[in-house]
Structures are given as structure tokens and as C-alpha cells.
């Protein structure tokens, strides 16, 4: 099997053909940052609604199951619920209604709550569309492309690798304990043994970390991670810049023209 490293594209982050998966991860990260920043400065409901309308389909276009999308969005909206429980009653000077116990609902509070709801859901959808479909390695590579210090991206990569191993070790130790009649839990009586298990996992992970470090040094690693094998395909960068650019221009125009 041969791959031409100069033309081979990066692996798409999802399987949907023609979807935003064909955008380079670095452009996604930069686009997410710029759009989030622009969104945080918008003041009109129209602009926020437009941003939500554009971003909401993205997780589905990336091939995420609707249950996952709705579940994660619902979790994020717990914070929004808190906003709706406080802001309409505390912010503003023009009451539009009065609830029992003399609780006044202000127009300004309602508008602000709605604006924040739209913005937060937009950010959630954008975050889900990229972060939930990109691997840690893709994210790290994207950050490296954007000039994030190499040590930080390396740290991110190795942490992810280590967490994977740590979890695998924990499962193995728990299974071994369960086979001998011990169910790890946080009950006071079982706590010392559970702590011993966790300590064992951590010590094992330390040993594993040493071995991974040795394996890397044996293969010539001296602290600088090699450059990505495949250069980003130009069309994936251009497509991303155009897509995020259009979305951003739309947001600014609506913000400017909105009543």
C-alpha cells in the first residue's frame, strides 16, 4: 500500500462525505476561537439566532448521533437553566409581569437570558462539532500548527496516552480484585483496600510511564517531537477559511444591520 506523503490528505474526522469533516483541524480550532470571540461581543438577538442556526446542524453533519448531541447539549443547558431562574427576576427596570409573592419579571432580564441561551447553545454546538469528533492527536496537531508551544502539545498527547493506560490498569486491577471477592467502592470499611488498589494502579502507571519514556529514547527521541508526517492539504485549509470566514461575515453583517 503506498501513500504519497506530499498529497495524502489527513484522515477525515468523520465519515460524512462533503461535510465539515473535510476542513483541516487547525482551521477548526482557529475558527472556533475567532467565532467564539465574535459571538461574545454580539448584542442583538438576531445575530445570536443566526449564529445558532448556522452552528446547530454542524454536529449532525459531522455524523454525531442525535442522542449524543442532545444529551451533551442538555447537560450544558443546566447552566442556562440557572440563568433563567435568576436573571429575569434580577436584571432590569421595566417589569413585564408579576408572579406570585410579588416576583417581578423584567424585560431586560428576559432579553439577556434569551441572548445568553442562544450564545451558549451556539458555542456548545460548535464545540461538539469539533472537539467531540476530533481525536486528541488531531487536536494536538492542530494546536501545534497554530504555534502552540511544542511542549504543551506533547504534554497533551502523552497525558491522553497515559490516561488510556491508567484506565486500562485500573480495570485490570478491579477485575482481579473482583475475581477474589472484593468489589472496590467508597464504603468506609472497604476504603483502605480501595486506596491500596488505587495506589497500586498509580505505582504501576509510574512504571509504565518510565517504560514509555525509555522506549521513546531508544528510538532517538530527544525531547522534540517530529513534525507531522503529512502536510495539510491546501484545499482543506482553504475550505475551512472560506466556511468560517463566511459565517463570521454573516454574523457581523446581521449584528450591524439588526434593529
Amino acid at each position: 500500500m503506498s501513500v504519497n506523503p506530499t498529497t495524502a490528505p489527513l484522515k477525515p474526522t468523520a465519515t460524512v462525505a462533503g461535510s465539515p469533516a473535510r476542513i483541516h483541524p487547525a482551521v477548526h480550532v482557529a475558527g472556533l476561537f475567532v467565532c467564539s470571540l465574535a459571538l461574545s461581543f454580539t448584542h442583538t438577538l438576531w445575530a445570536a439566532a443566526y449564529a445558532l442556526a448556522v452552528s446547530l446542524p454542524l454536529p449532525f453533519l459531522k455524523g454525531l448521533p442525535w442522542r449524543t448531541v442532545l444529551g451533551r447539549m442538555a447537560l450544558g443547558n443546566l447552566f442556562v437553566l440557572f440563568i433563567w431562574l435568576t436573571m429575569p427576576f434580577t436584571l432590569g427596570q421595566h417589569p413585564v409581569a408579576t408572579l406570585p409573592f410579588g416576583l417581578a419579571v423584567y424585560a431586560e432580564g428576559l432579553t439577556k437570558s434569551l441572548l445568553l441561551t442562544l450564545k451558549i447553545n451556539c458555542l456548545l454546538a460548535l464545540g461538539l462539532a469539533f472537539l467531540h469528533t476530533a481525536s486528541v492527536h488531531e487536536t494536538a496537531k492542530a494546536l501545534a500548527t497554530l504555534g502552540v508551544p511544542h511542549k504543551l502539545t506533547l504534554l497533551l498527547l502523552l497525558t491522553a496516552r497515559h490516561m488510556h493506560s491508567l484506565w486500562a490498569s485500573y480495570r485490570t486491577v478491579c477485575n482481579a480484585a473482583a475475581l477474589r471477592g472484593f468489589t472496590p467502592c467508597l464504603r468506609l470499611r472497604k476504603l483502605p483496600k480501595f486506596a491500596a488498589l488505587v495506589t497500586f494502579v498509580l505505582l504501576k502507571s509510574l512504571e509504565r510511564a518510565d517504560n514509555v519514556d525509555a522506549a521513546m529514547r531508544l528510538r532517538g527521541f530527544t525531547g522534540a517531537f517530529p513534525a507531522p508526517l503529512f502536510a495539510p492539504a491546501k484545499q482543506h485549509v482553504v475550505r475551512g477559511v472560506v466556511a468560517y470566514g463566511l459565517a463570521l461575515v454573516g454574523l457581523l453583517v446581521i449584528e450591524h444591520l439588526a434593529p
Binding site: 528510538r219 527521541f221 517530529p226 513534525a227 502536510a231
Partner: peptide, 11 residues
Amino acid sequence: AFAPQNYGLPP
């Protein structure tokens, strides 16, 4: 490709 890259080969 990790080792060849560490030993200076281009991608």
C-alpha cells in the same frame, strides 16, 4: 516512522 523522523529523515 517515529524513529526515522527522530534520526532526521524528512517526512
